[in-house]
């Protein structure tokens, strides 16, 4: 398995200032698979992607992508590595001062010396793959949320990356766009022979499209398994998460003092 692993995350600890976010997590993303990383808001999922992309440095442990330890790369090596990665940001992060066409063409123009005619063909192919070839002349402000996400997806795969990372790809989408984006993630991954990491808290949609799921809570991996294993899991946390229950291992209340005392009341005796 390890020879087939594109990304290996070993014993990674990470803390913002002194607030620990990740406490010794181990994850393996095999080549060609779509992996979901799930957990509640603020559990360190996005941090995990930033560690893989080299935007952050682990306090201990290491992240290995395609055999190279990310935080040991120099600036140039890191940039070379990032060219082979694609990342879809939470709300697309399209460049608002460029048209859809220029957004998708951006990396091709920056990183390659391809003539404009070939770039044109490539851009239209990428846009066609997400079903938005007709919108190439629009500005990002003219797109709906779902369309913007698809354009961002086309831009993410512009240079045919080996690793595609999705940060909350389903956030704020209507059910139709949700299904479209979900299917695109799966199809693009298989068509490109890439490896995809989907960071999300949308359980139902991801269960449909992914091969393997990691659950993170409080900075540690609390559960993992294939979609089938996860749906039938009886671990309290996973159960609460998958079925969206209000109270459980993840409490409804933020830790606080005695309610009665806060209201300056004394309960009846």
């Amino acid at each position: 398995m390890s020879s087939q692993a594109l990304v290996e995350i070993r014993d990674v600890n990470f803390a913002y200032d002194s607030r620990p976010i990740l406490k010794g997590v181990n994850l393996t993303f095999p080549k060609g698979k779509v992996i979901a990383v799930m957990g509640g808001s603020g559990c360190g999922k996005t941090t995990l992607l930033q560690l893989i992309g080299g935007a952050l440095r682990p306090s201990s442990g290491y992240v290995k992508v395609d055999g190279q330890v990310i935080h040991e790369l120099d600036h140039k090596g890191l940039y070379l590595m990032r060219r082979r990665m694609g990342m879809l940001f939470q709300f697309g992060a399209l460049f608002t001062d460029m048209s859809v066409y220029d957004n998708v063409a951006f990396q091709m123009r920056e990183h390659t010396d391809l003539p404009e005619e070939i770039i044109r063909d490539l851009v239209l192919m990428k846009l066609n793959a997400v079903g938005l070839r007709g919108s190439h002349h629009l500005m990002p402000a003219e797109l709906s949320g779902g369309m913007a996400r698809r354009v961002a997806l086309a831009r993410t795969v512009a240079l045919d990356p080996m690793l595609i990372m999705y940060d909350e790809p389903f956030a704020g989408l209507d059910p139709i766009s949700l299904t479209v984006v979900g299917n695109l993630i799966r199809r693009l991954n298989d068509a490109l022979g890439a490896t995809s990491v989907v960071v999300t808290h949308d359980v139902q949609e991801s269960l449909k499209i992914v091969d393997y799921i990691y659950f993170i809570a409080d900075g540690v991996v609390v559960a993992e398994g294939t979609p089938a294993e996860i749906s039938s899991s009886d671990k309290p946390f996973v159960h609460q998460f998958v079925h969206g229950e209000m109270d459980g291992p993840v409490p409804f209340h933020y830790p606080c003092g005695d309610y009665w005392q806060d209201l300056n009341l004394r309960p009846w005796r």
């Binding site: 992309g53 935007a55 990032r82 940001f89 992060a93 399209l94 608002t96 951006f106 990183h111």
Partner: peptide, 17 residues
């Protein structure tokens, strides 16, 4: 705003300074 909407981070992740 480019920073707030993660356009700057996106650019960095595209290996563009």
């Amino acid at each position: 705003l480019m920073k707030a909407t993660e356009q700057i981070s996106a650019m960095e992740m595209m290996a563009i300074n």
